[in-house]
Amino acid sequence: MFRKPRFWLLVFTLAALIFNFCHPFDIQLPHISLAAEKVATIGGFPITNTLIASWVTMAVLIVVSVLATRNMREVPRGLQNVVELVVEKLYGFVESIAGPHTPLIFPTIATLFLFIIVSNWMGLLPGYLSIVVEHAAPSAHEGAHAVEKVPLLRSAATDLNTTLALAIASVLMSQVYGVIVVGFPQYFLRFVNIRRPIAFFRGLQGRGPRTGVGSLLFGFIDLFIGVLELFDEFTKILSFSFRLFGNIFAGEVLLGVMVFLFPFVASLPFLGLEIFVGAVQAFVFAVLSTAFIAQATAHHGAEAEAHEEQSVPQPHVVSTVGQGT
């Protein structure tokens, strides 16, 4: 019994759990702040801990990529294997949603996914939030330079600047790809749909088939739908950014509180939960971005169908979902 490692593990766990209630350390509830803390100021530009964390994430991603692809081999080994697996799975996944436009949109989706998942997971590493630097903050009180302790690193997605930037990038790229695939003026007809009124007035002037007044009415509905579509793009930015921010920030707060209550062992399950949440959020962000971009690039087919009324219905690009893998 005393030789079994399982027994000692149990004893250790129990001891740690009891230790939770009688340890000599002074563990404080972490200061919860929605805004990222400023660590330093360079040339008037405040550097926050989340910005540093994003740079670290970027550096890790770039260094790993360079190391993995520096000497690519036909027969992959080690890191190259891992990187190839990740890229291949991601590519297959994007292909299953976006179909033929995959080569065009893949870098955006993959970068979103990789940045978010790596940043989320790195945010769980020891050192984040726990390494503290002193920062002489220009305090509200004139003259008195209060020295406050702020964490050097804080998970990048716990800053709305980061998540908003990612959301804007995603929505912006979906417009860009829409214009690339559908064409310049045609794509924006999605937001300002004046095809029916134009057809109506052309009909009146005898330069096209006559359409009824009802078509003019539908034209107004189209315009309204266009406004909704435009509004939808901004909603996407908000939902993207607040979903990611909310989940990761809440996770951080949860972990902080758990560590405050039970510093040893008991908070471990929540760490596992946060690993899961971090991956899920990255996945959700990537899936939604892919779906929105696929929608934007597929718009052409649906519109052309509505425009040339008697034409043969074209296959919708979104219908390629599930064809790949």
Partner: peptide, 22 residues
């Protein structure tokens, strides 16, 4: 400023990863 910085970061990362990874 940070929003713009993060946007630039993202597109920078996207460019670099396209070159060295994808």
């Amino acid at each position: 400023g940070h929003l713009v910085a993060q946007l630039i970061n993202f597109f920078l990362l996207m460019g670099v990863l396209t070159l060295v990874l994808y």
